[in-house]
Design a protein around this nucleic acid. Structure first.
Lengths: 215, 215
DNA sequence: GGGGGGATCCCCCGGACGGGGGAGGGCGGT
DNA sequence: ACCGCCCTCCCCCGTCCGGGGGATCCCCCC
């Protein structure tokens, strides 16, 4: 197991090195004090895991993580942070980090975390997991649209694909007038003015979700 | 710490009881073999943690979890499963579970997991964390819309709020004709036919996200 | 048997929308 | 100085959309 340590504080680096170096077969192959050096270090040494601090002078840990991940190195990034700032978690996830743990976790847990990310898995400390799950669940369906009939739901799905009344008519083998009357019902039930607002309501309510096939 | 165990297999219940009962101060206050009994048990004993199996005859663990969570008991649900089926993770999260671990984790980790969820935090086993993060990140912005100018982005945001050309004009202190010409540029750049399709593109690309404030 | 809701279709109409054209001013790069 | 791009505004026009009336049929439920 080859590990790189990135932190602007030499003391922290020393502490981490002491913890990880004590593990049999583990080797700290380099240290860096800023994001710039971290990216170079990762490219040169291609370690299995990089322990990455976020707050650093110059290029920060998130940007460094992005670069390392986008360089397609065989390297997992484990973000270490002092504070439980939730936004950091999401930023780190978006940056491509494999894990997110607090610096003050017990050494045994830190070692376990390194093992986990090196194995290609991911890991968050519990408070973050909670936040992530909450935000995830918050994006779920949730709101139910006022009861639309089967047909109206069908038409609304078509609307949410950007179809015109005429296209919907063809698609569903209906007269345009029928489609118009369904659309009118939908607008009334959803209490919106036009088809665009109906589509917005469909997205906001989770009736349709981004990423679903367009047709 | 008061714990309830729910699993349709008596052997598993016995094993769990043995593991958890060995912790000082921990007390297994009840067992249940199906979801129905689990809900009743949780309501009666109000344990700190319920270990919940998913696959059970009758009412399954997910439904039982939903009922326990919606009953607003002071009880955290830790879902135990034999298989790493990803969909279970998401279902469990939606059902309101605080944690999701494999049955075959080492006793020490299981105990730690119980401790974590009892503390009100959440926890997933590493492979699930990875999946959750991937799905989470997949829902993030990602796609960039064809380069829209500042003004066009502004107008598109308004479109995505369901505003008419006239309303956008008022909002941005513009003539309706100006709005129309911006809209026309947007339609051309996004290669769509009308404002509704533009809004769909805005949602699908992550330019706007469900759940953002409507105004 | 009657009533109600859903689904289908029809007509009229005004206004919003989208396509086409053009034009002027500002700002930055060559 | 010129060009290109953006932002702003203007006109014309055909189409689609949404609102207002309807109507007929079917099915379920009381």
């Amino acid at each position: 197991m080859r590990i790189a340590i990135v932190d602007d504080d030499p003391l922290v680096r020393m502490g981490l090195r002491a913890i990880l170096g004590s593990e049999a077969g583990w080797d700290v192959v380099g240290e860096a004090g800023d994001g710039e050096a971290a990216v170079a270090l990762a490219a040169r040494e291609r370690p299995d895991v990089v322990l990455m601090d976020i707050r650093m002078p110059g290029v920060d840990g998130l940007e460094a993580t992005r670069r390392i991940v986008s360089a397609a190195l065989p390297t997992a990034v484990l973000v270490l942070t002092t504070f439980e700032l939730d936004e950091y978690v999401f930023d780190a996830m978006r940056a491509g980090a494999s894990g997110f743990v607090l610096k003050r976790v017990p050494p045994a847990e830190l070692i376990e975390a390194v093992r986990v990310v090196a194995a290609g898995e991911s890991l968050l400390f519990p408070a973050s997991t909670r936040t992530v799950i909450e935000r995830f669940v918050a994006r779920e369906p949730g709101v139910t649209l006022p009861e639309l009939t089967e047909r109206e739901q069908e038409v609304l799905r078509q609307l949410a694909r950007g179809r015109s009344n005429g296209e919907i008519a063809s698609e569903l083998f209906l007269a345009v007038e029928t489609v118009k009357s369904h659309v009118a019902s939908i607008l009334m039930k959803l209490d919106v003015r036009d088809r665009t607002q109906a589509v917005i309501a469909a997205y906001e309510s989770g009736f349709v979700a981004p990423g679903s096939p367009s047709d």
